[in-house]
Design a protein around this nucleic acid. Structure first.
Lengths: 227, 227
DNA sequence: CATGCTTGGATCGTATACGATAAGATCAAC
DNA sequence: GTTGATCTTATCGTATACGATCCAAGCATG
């Protein structure tokens, strides 16, 4: 009874969970790019676990839309069509808007301060030109607000959307000139709306516009580059 | 080489898939009600398969939000708070509206006719008072339209929402007096809009209102019953 | 030289087995 | 009779093993 808890670490992480986080992290940080083939045995060997939990992790990711899995053939990181992607982002903005409005009443002063810290660090990223970190912080920013969302189902829809977006994160996101600055400013405005107890609808529309703004900027940017 | 294909049946269904459909069907038709405990070994025995594919199926359902799974404790059909539920439906309506608008250009005359057949059968259900079948047909109706949705990610958000709603389907849905009739009429109107090549925005709003109408009716109904 | 068949290896799919965990039952002490 | 500790059992979590499947490379045949 002493030996297993002697590990010091929190004992609570199943192998399956480990594999899940492992693969998901690599997809999100771009090590595994869309189309990358995920071989169960390989991953299992890397993590020094058997294939069973790895398989389970992969199927979870499949259910989340981050990977595709074909019977007797194997899994690969989901491929995405950029055009589809933009529509998805826009639709996601509808859900995010709602989630923001629902969460607002439960956001504490501490959260607001934390969010402002994150936002400040995002400004720094603008100067240092660190798109990767910027994107990460952006996610954290919204997470601080959404973590209070009283409706887990809606929150789940948001997370699912994020998982999808995650696959292309670094290839699509990054800095669209000028937009990142706007984005940071809009964050501050969102916080002020929350702070002042704005009407849910006003918040919803503001949050929706925040995402839509990014989308428009992205499309313009790509159009200007002749895509 | 002869023996395995001699089964006549389509060989293509993994045990895991079998288990997945099995459990999901029972959740949807109400055999497994929210809170029902899903014991891996039991299900495995019923299906005459080992626990591994069952486990995989359960985790998939977990990722879809239909069941909850606690480490070393087990799985159960997801519990839902009705209040949360209504908000979820409303938010889902936003996504469904978008999905409808995106799908419309690809809906064929054949689809329209099929949809009308389904809708006619829904009218029959009104007479025979068959809520279960009505709900099933309702899902089919929308599936006929959505199957053309050019954006799999958005479609996936819709399906995920449906999966969540499925858990409570028979306890929440069913007939709200008068609403079912309206619903059938709105379906016909939606079909006409699609047929006439209406603007995407018009379609989106109409489809959104369709869902929202059901929600309002539901809330009123429950309020009148003193809930 | 092209085409179809055979064979081999890599990978997946699932069964079985066993250790680990948690929840309830039993029993002793107060 | 209540409380607390120990024990039992049901169930989960994962490793290992093996059969099934797919893919590609090589060979035979026209």
């Amino acid at each position: 009874m002493a030996s297993e808890s002697a590990k010091g670490e929190v004992v609570t992480e199943s192998k399956s969970e480990l594999a899940y986080r492992f693969v998901k992290a690599r997809i999100e940080n771009g090590s595994y790019t869309p189309g990358f083939r995920l071989v169960l045995g390989q991953i299992a060997k890397q993590l020094e676990v058997s294939v069973v939990p790895v398989r389970e992790a992969i199927r979870r990711l499949e259910a989340e839309g981050a990977v595709t899995f074909e019977r007797n053939v194997g899994a690969q990181v989901a491929m995405v069509d950029e055009r589809e992607y933009f529509y998805t982002m826009e639709t996601l903005s509808l859900v995010e808007g709602r989630a923001t409005a629902l969460s607002a009443p439960f956001v504490t002063a501490l959260d607001l301060s934390e969010a402002r810290d994150i936002n400040a660090e995002m400004r720094d990223c603008l100067d240092h030109f660190d798109p990767h970190r910027f994107t990460e912080l952006n996610r954290q920013f919204h997470a601080v607000i959404f973590e209070h969302c009283p409706n887990p189902h809606i929150l789940d829809l948001v997370h699912r959307g994020w998982n999808r977006l995650a696959v292309l994160r670094d290839s699509i996101f990054g800095f669209v000139p000028g937009r990142a600055q706007e984005s940071v400013d809009e964050h501050e405005r969102l916080l002020q709306l929350i702070e002042s107890g704005a009407e849910p609808l006003e918040l919803e529309l503001a949050a929706r516009a925040h995402r839509t703004g990014t989308l428009d900027a992205l499309l313009n940017h790509q159009a200007n580059q002749g895509r």
